[in-house]
Design a protein around this nucleic acid. Structure first.
Lengths: 230, 230
DNA sequence: GTCTATATAATGATAGAC
DNA sequence: GTCTATCATTATATAGAC
């Protein structure tokens, strides 16, 4: 499998280029200790000198950009299987379960905390995946149609990714290394029942709130900016 | 209104103690620039010397703890009005709308990104508030009962706070100062319709998934191992 | 490509005068 | 209480030898 990031080959054997080895070490170190850790720790973990890290990536920011790009590419490559719903937890579960990619989850949580583009691009990716999944479900008759499919996809993706990252962050606060695969499984178990309740039965006993908003928006007709209607 | 944090009085006039002035400046600076900014910037914003900041708070960490405690207390004081639902967006909306407390929202997002206890305690607070709100709604007949009320409260709180913080974080990435009150209003507008759809009508057209889980768990009885996380 | 040694800047925190 | 001045540490990044 070719790595798009730096063109190195990725195989069971550790025949990585030094640059790729440094990048992998950086993902592991940043994931475990956060971005406040210096280049020295990364260099030590990779078994090289601090100067060589800068030589290959130009600066610490350059190193982080390479890590971000690699993680994002790995996420995009981990296509959500069509049988399960494309929740953020499900997507990260796939990553965490593959031993080779497990450190990426820790890095992802750190990167999200620290801001940057990775969080935004991950969000956009999940929105797109969710929108497609919802459209398929509606077409198949298993999911209810929405008055605004795009808004619903964005809403559900925001809930899914936001709650997953919040859970993982709080979970990661505890000292000592975190088993992220286990953490995500715990999350899935915890939310299973209430999520299915909400998705199956809703929360309100009456439709007064929804009716009021739909009336306000123009008598059941979707607002003009809506492109796609059921 | 007495400030519980340091006993200073809080009134329209700026008769704050120097310690309180430094703390307010720190909340503003940290909120705008993040926690990587040094003590010098805080001192400059407060109009004092860097040494005085340390003199009052012992260390930079001590300063942050005071800020965290003050923000958390402000959040607890901003009791969610019983008429509106206690979503995270609603709670932060109340903070952002009071000009005096508006900087707290920026600080809160930064603090959440940076980890620490504040995020966890805010989460616990919202869980408790949500659980009470849901119980009241069920008793009044406006909300559907749950097979596991505690798990549902935790789930909904996680979704609400997680998605709100994710939205605010992505929103805050843009350069330039952010109008957090406006941001939260935008969030509310954006999710209004899909949220009401989901709460009123659900998402699934059939109850097969829920039925399967309920059967597996043994006839609607909550599992015994359900416990607070950490 | 890779190393050692070093430059430079910023940080948190201290000491002591007023 | 508040300041100025300074220390000690750490960080990123560079220079040049091999």
């Amino acid at each position: 499998m070719r790595s798009i990031v730096d063109g190195s080959t990725r195989s069971p054997q550790r025949d990585l280029t030094t640059r790729a080895r440094i990048r992998d070490a950086a993902i592991a170190v940043f994931g475990e200790q956060g971005f406040r850790t210096g280049v020295r720790a990364v260099a030590a973990a990779a078994g090289v000198s601090p100067g060589l890290v800068i030589h290959h990536f130009g600066s610490k920011d350059g190193l982080r950009e390479s890590c971000d790009a690699y993680v994002l590419e790995a996420i995009r490559a981990a296509k959500t299987e069509s049988l399960t719903r494309p929740s953020a937890a499900g997507l990260l579960q796939q990553l965490a379960d593959v031993e080779e990619y497990a450190p990426l989850v820790a890095y992802l949580v750190r990167s999200y905390q620290s801001g940057g583009e990775l969080a935004r691009q991950l969000f956009d990716h999940i929105v797109a995946t969710t929108e497609q999944y919802l459209a398929d479900g509606v077409a198949a008759g298993t999911l209810r149609p929405s008055r605004d499919p795009a808004a619903r996809a964005r809403y559900l993706a925001m809930q899914s990714l936001g709650s997953t990252l919040l859970f993982l962050q709080i979970r990661g606060e505890q000292d000592g290394p975190v088993d992220w695969g286990r953490a995500i499984r715990d999350l899935t178990d915890e939310i299973m029942l209430p999520a299915l309740e909400l998705y199956t039965e809703g929360l309100f006993t009456a439709s007064t709130f929804l009716d009021a908003v739909v009336d306000q928006r123009g008598g059941g007709d979707p607002r003009p900016t809506l492109q796609e209607n059921r």
